[in-house]
Design a protein around this nucleic acid. Sequence first.
DNA 1: CGTTACCAAT
Length: 622
Amino acid sequence: MILFSARNSFTLLTSTSRSYTSATLLHFLQLSAAHRSLRLTKHSHTQILSLGLTQNSFLATKLVTAYAICGHPSRSRLVFDSVEYKNVYLHNSLISGYAKNYAYYEAFDLFNDMCYSNVSPDEFTLATIAKMCGDVKDLNVGSLIHGKIIKIGFNEDVVVANSLMSMYNRCGKFSGTKNLFDEMPQRNAGSWNVLIKGYSNLEDCSLELGLWEIVKCMQIDGVKLDAFTVSSLLSLCGDNDDTAGKWDYGRELHCYIVRNEFDLGLDSDFHLGCCLIDMYSKKSDNLDVGRRVFDQMKRRNVYAWTAMINGYVQNGALDEALVLFCEMQVRDRTEPNKVSLLSVLPACSSLVGLTGGKQIHGFAIRKDLNHDLSLCNALIDMYSKCGSLDSARRVFEDSSFQKDSISWSSMISGYGLHGKGEEAVLLYDKMLSLGAKPDMITVVGVLSACSKSGLINKGLNIYDSVINVYGINLTTEICSCVVDLLGRAGQLDRAFDFIKTMPVEPSPSVWGALVSASVMHGNSEMQELAYRFLIQLEPDNPSNYISLSNVYASSKRWDVVAKVRATMKDRGLRKAPGCSWISIHDRTHCFYVADKAHPHSKSIYEMLDNLVLIMKGAMVDR
DNA sequence: CGTTACCAAT
C-alpha cells in the first residue's frame, strides 16, 4: 500500500517535472524520506541537479536527511560538500544523519569542524550531540558538552535539557538526570519521560514504589501523559501473580488510554497497542484482553502481529500462535520480520511441527535472514526438538554466522535430547578447545546429556571442572543435574548429602531428581522423604500427590494412599490427565490413557497390540 | 514559501 502511493508521486514527478518548483521537490524529498526510498531520493536528486538547484539550502538539507534515512550517509556527505555556503541547517542534518547511521566518529568530527568554523552550533546541534554521547555512553564527553551548553546558554531549552538528561541516564548517572530535572525552568512530557526512564532503570527495587508518585506529580505539574509515557509505564508492568509489590498499574493505564481516546494502530501509536498486548500477555489470565486490544486496533503492523503471536507462544497457546502467523500474511498481507520468525519457531518446536519449522527456515533463506545469530540458534533448537538432529547440525555448521554460547548450548542439548551423550561431550570438549567459555546453560546441557546416556563419571568430572576451572555459579538446574548423576550411579546418600550442603535453595526439580533416582534403585524410604520435601515446596502441584500415593500403593499401604488422596481433595487439587499427540497432515491427534475417542481407535489399538507382540518377540530372541 | 533536534522500541 505504502509503496504504491510513493510510486504514484514519482510518476507524477517524472512526467511533468519541467513545471516543478523547489517547493514541490521539497515535498517529494519529504516523501522519499518518509518511505525510506533510495530510488525516489536519487530521482529527486537528479531533478535538483538538472534544474540547477544544487545551491538551494532547503533542498540540500532535505536531501542530506533523505539519504541518511535511506542508510547512505556517504551520499549525504557528497551533497554536503557540494554546497558552497553551508549554514547551520545543513550541518545539523548531516550530524544527525551520521548519528542515525551509527557513524559517531564522523558526527563528532563534523561537530568539531563546526566549532572552529564561522557557523556556530545551535540548540538543534547540541541536542543531537548530547544524545550521541548517551548512545556511545561517554560520560566524559557528555559532561564537556553539558559545560559547553551552559556556557552558550542553551541549558534552558527543554529539548536540549531532555537530551542531556537522557545522556546521563544512558551513562548510568541518574543523579545527573535528577539534578538537571530539578533545575529546569519548564518541563514538557519528554522531560518527565526521561526522568521516569532513569528512575525505572535503577537497580534498587524499593524505589519502584515511588514511580506512581512521579506520575501523579507529573499530572499535578499540569503535564499530560503522552503515548511515550504510557507505553514506557506499560512495559514496566510485570506479572502480578507471584511477586507481591511488583509494579502493576496495567489496567489503570489501559483506562487512561481509553479515557483520553489515544489511537491504537495509527502510525506513531502502533507502539502503544503493542505495549498493551505485551502487558496483558504477561498477566497469565488476561491474554484474551490482549487479543481484544489487538482486534480493536484500527490497523495492525508487523510489530502488532508479532506482539500478539508472542503473547500466545508465551502462554502456551501454540495453535493460536501458528494460526495468527498464517493470518497475518494471508489476511493482512503483512510480511513477517526476523522477530516474528523468532516468536513462532518455539511453537513449532513444542508442537513438533517439523514441516512448519522447515517452511520458516525456507522463508528465512529467501529473506536472507538465515545468517542471523539468534535465528540460527532458534532453528538449531527447533530442528533438534522436532527430531531432525542432522538438520540442526547443518545449521550449526553454517560458517556464515558467528556462533555464541547459545549456539553451542542448543546443539549440545540437542544431542542430549536424542540420547547421544558421547557426541554431546565431544562437542562440549570442542567448544572448550576453541576457547569458548561455557555458561550455566551449556553446563546443564552437557550434564543432562551425560545423565541420559549413563556417562556418570564423565558428567561428575565435567561438574568438578566447571566449578573449579571456569568458576561457574551454581544454579538449581545444575544442582538437579548433579543429583541426577549421583542418583543414577546409585549413590543416593551422597546425592542427599549434596542437597543438604549445596549453596542454593533446593528447587522442586532437585527433589524430583532424587525421587526418580530412588524409584530407579528401589529405595522407597528415600523416595518418600524426597516427596515430602517436594510437597512442602509445591503444595498445589497435584502431580506430587499422585506420585506419592503411587509410592504407597506399590507397597500396598492403602490407608496412607487414601489419606494422601483426601488431602488432595481438601485442597481442591485435580490432576489433569497426561496425553500424547502426533501431527499428521496438519491435524493434531491427542491420546489420553485408555482413550477410545479417536475415530480410528479400533485399528490403532490393533496395531499397538501387534507392535507389543513384535517387541516381546524381540526380547525373547535376545 | 520551506530545512535541522529530545523522550519508548515488538
